[in-house]
Simulated assay, not measured.
Amino acid sequence: MIVLSNFMLDFVMLNAFIAVLFPMTAGAQFILTLVLIKGEICPGQRGRIHRILPLLLVLWLLVASQHLWALLNVALIGYFYSQVKTGKTRQEGPLKVLYCANGVAGLTLLYAILSAPNWVAAVTLVLSCLLLGAIAAHWLLTIARTRLQAFHRLLPVIGILTAILLTLCIVPLAASMDPIQLQNVLHSILLSFSLLVTAVIIWSWHLLTTKNADKVQLGISCLVLLTAMSGFHQLYFY
């Protein structure tokens, strides 16, 4: 029984972890598309951004373990990647394919919002797309060695503001629980909030120290944020 209970707990945690990968991957894809279209990037930066697109494919494949529709995005992003250059290039590639991928992600996100179990889950899904999408995109842009200083400053600020809004959503949800439910999840709530604050501090550390963002720093922040949001995700089903 103990082994079965531990297995079920691990399954629930894994399920929650993969569930929050969806808004993160969608948000990161939206931001990367914005950078490719509107960002003032040189040919070298464009090629390096193209080079990190397989990382998006891996994320969509993980999402596909829960949502088979994500395989369509894998196909679309894979086709776009196959048509662009990963070296220095001014060619934008078939952007219509990228628009279609964003459309699929956007419509599925809308469906998930409308079918959420409660209003907090719906709002949190939107905030997760902003928060996790911003940190994932920031990490990927840092890996690509982009020099978009405006994004390196703006994305952590978006993260801070979104974390505040997220707190304002979770607190009412916790307050509406009966005492027994709250006692069962109080440790998880406190742990998730602690991880959320820690992740945001790590993420914005380069702003506090006036240094360049580091990919290791952002990678750690991304993992901590994913863990925090996985904890919050489990609260919706109590």
Rank of each mutant, 00 (worst) to 15 (best):
L57R: 04
L57D: 04
L59V: 08
L59G: 10
W60F: 12
L61I: 04
V63W: 07
A64I: 02
S65L: 14
S65H: 14
Q66Y: 09
H67D: 13
L68Q: 00
W69Y: 14
W69E: 06
A70Q: 10
L72Y: 05
V74T: 08
A75L: 14
A75W: 02
A75C: 13
L76I: 11
Y79F: 13
F80Y: 03
F80D: 02
V84Y: 01
K85E: 11
T86G: 11
G87K: 13
G87T: 14
T89K: 05
Q91I: 14
Q91T: 11
E92S: 12
G93Q: 00
G93E: 02
L95C: 03
K96I: 10
V97E: 04
L98Q: 02
Y99D: 15
C100Q: 03
C100R: 12
A101R: 00
A101K: 11
N102K: 13
G103E: 03
G103W: 09
G103H: 12
V104Y: 06
V104T: 09
G106T: 14
L109Q: 15
L109V: 07
L109I: 11
L109F: 12
L110V: 14
Y111F: 08
A112R: 10
I113A: 01
I113R: 14
I113M: 11
L114E: 07
S115A: 05
A116Y: 04
P117L: 13
